[in-house]
Amino acid sequence: MVSTDQHAEQRALVDATYDERAIVALAWEALGTVPDPEVPVISIVELGIVRGVAFDGGRLRVEVTPTYSGCPATELIETMIRERLAASGLRDVDLVRRLSPSWTTDWLAPEGKAKLVAFGIAPPHRVENRIDVAGIGPLRRTDAVVPCPRCASPRTRLLSQFGSTACKAQYRCEDCREPFDYFKPH
């Protein structure tokens, strides 16, 4: 948490210096404290959806890409970004929603993946180019092993391709019997 004093200090920095690199660094730092509303243990930076930050002509430009097209958190995240940046003294912000290249779970930061496991969510496998595989998978699929985030057992079973949010699937551990979410490779 950033204290009120620090906020005042940051605002003074923005007003006084207009040092482009310092402001961009400040913006990244601020963005790193905005949590993903649906998986609050990781930040939107660790989630890999902040695609660029630039400061030019007195305005900050932040590029954000949505995770899933229908993600209901997209608008909320944009509001949280504006509020957090404003608290750091960055009020003239252009938020740009960028579609391409489209978000992939391969952009999740390694420390973000560790936080997911600690939170009880199995992190995604690497995607490579899943969608380019000609024809969709073998008919009765044997899924990749998704280890249980609680007891690390490899004996887990897919319950449903869609879980508590569009980005997660539901699994159950056959050893500790606990159900858990799997962050789907995307």
Binding site: P66, Y68, S69, L99, S100, P101, S102, T104, R130, I131, I136, A166, H186
Partner: peptide
């Protein structure tokens, strides 16, 4: 390109 991953 965005939608195709979801539809898979």
């Amino acid at each position: 390109a965005k939608a195709v991953k979801e539809v898979a």
